[in-house]
Design a binder for these strands. Structure first.
Lengths: 213, 213
DNA sequence: GGTGTTAGTTGCAAAGTCCAACGAAGTGTT
DNA sequence: AACACTTCGTTGGACTTTGCAACTAACACC
């Protein structure tokens, strides 16, 4: 039976760019190298794969996040020198990065946000993790393109301007304001929080939240 | 480390309906019950998860199919009575059902095509397999909706009429001929096989194949 | 030659999308 | 108080895509 781990690709917008949270490994193999935070499946405590991913995120990053999503599984005999056959289940989390402060947990020396382009191109990442990051980014971009849950990158409440700007940063291109709003309205993605406005230096903006469904 | 299996959801159009290939189990647990064909991961021979899925399909069904796709992984302590913690990696295959004759292999008593609706509703399927079928169907329908690879359900060569009718059966609604063809042309999904026509009782039709890309 | 059936194209109206401009509602400046 | 400035939110119109129906084409069969 294979040596089984969970790896978590935490994505967030930091400095106006899509970045991934990497951990510097404290122990062999690949000690000192950067890798996705992850941990070993524990069949004595984990009630499911989703629960295991939550536990790993709690132990390694000190985070409790609701929207984890299973991305894929990778397996093979040469992935990890500790075992003759290593299997990783990869999860993805989306976070409003400014509001979430992960802290380095067990077996992690340091944590850092890295722009996804760098991480994918960086051949010095441990294991096959640069490829896993690539998959996480690809599937996330596809979801944003369909206007599925881009709001997970934002706090609970936000204005449509913030949401649109978030999507533009994720996709790397400008979007049209009127069609963007029409689509949101059609698909009932968000709903206004009655009476709440974001005030500032200019005209106040209506505050929205994810639609209940 | 968990007891790890691969399960294969083979989907095909049979009798004008989307059906899934089920196997009656020869051995415990769930002997005599219907389940997705599957097998245990063998870390001594499998070079990757994809290769393992191919091997299982060869051993259990006698099939060699090119387009397997990993769908998801499911794991937990109560999924399989043989082990304290069972993990399954689920693969999906699409086949031109009329041309492919799977044969019951190791540890399988019988094979049968079942309409996917039946299989999803049937609570007597072994393990959590009716749920896995549901996921396979859902993701497949979504891909057909985007006109990704609906041609995998067909032989190498086909007419546009056959392809359209296939999509209509999969989606359960009629499609417009002109816009269907416009989309195929735009996205360069298929290409004509010059000079080859399907003849029959009526006007001959141009034969197409998947575009090389 | 006429009829029936499927293949493939064309024309057009309706719907949707993209782009730019506009009025609205605030703050800060003069 | 008047004005400039910025962002919010909507509107109008050109353009593109889609959906529907009609039309021609090419065969078999009678």
């Amino acid at each position: 039976m294979p040596f089984t781990r969970l790896e978590i690709a935490v994505l967030g917008l930091v400095d106006g760019e899509l970045q991934v949270l990497l951990a510097r490994r404290a122990e062999a193999p690949h000690a000192g190298k950067w890798a996705l935070p992850g941990g070993v499946l524990r069949i004595d405590v984990d009630a499911s794969l989703d629960a295991a991913a939550q536990r790993v995120m709690r132990e390694r990053l000190g985070l409790e996040l609701p929207f984890l999503r299973q991305l894929c599984a990778a397996g093979g005999p040469t992935r990890d020198p500790r075992a003759p056959w290593a299997l990783s289940i990869v999860y993805r989390a989306l976070v409003p990065a400014e509001n979430v402060k992960p802290s380095a947990g067990k077996r992690i020396e340091a944590l850092a946000w890295r722009p996804v382009g760098d991480a994918i191109a960086d051949k010095s990442l441990a294991f096959d993790h640069s490829q896993l990051v690539s998959q996480a980014v690809e599937s996330t971009r596809a979801e944003v393109e369909r206007l599925d849950l881009p709001a997970r990158f934002l706090p609970d409440q936000f204005t449509l301007g913030e949401l649109q700007s978030t999507c533009e940063q994720l996709l790397g291109r400008r979007l049209d304001k009127s069609s963007f709003r029409r689509k949101l309205a059609d698909r009932q993605v968000v709903e206004p929080v009655e009476g709440l406005m974001r005030t500032g230096a200019n005209r106040p903006a209506q505050i929205y939240r994810l639609h209940a469904r």
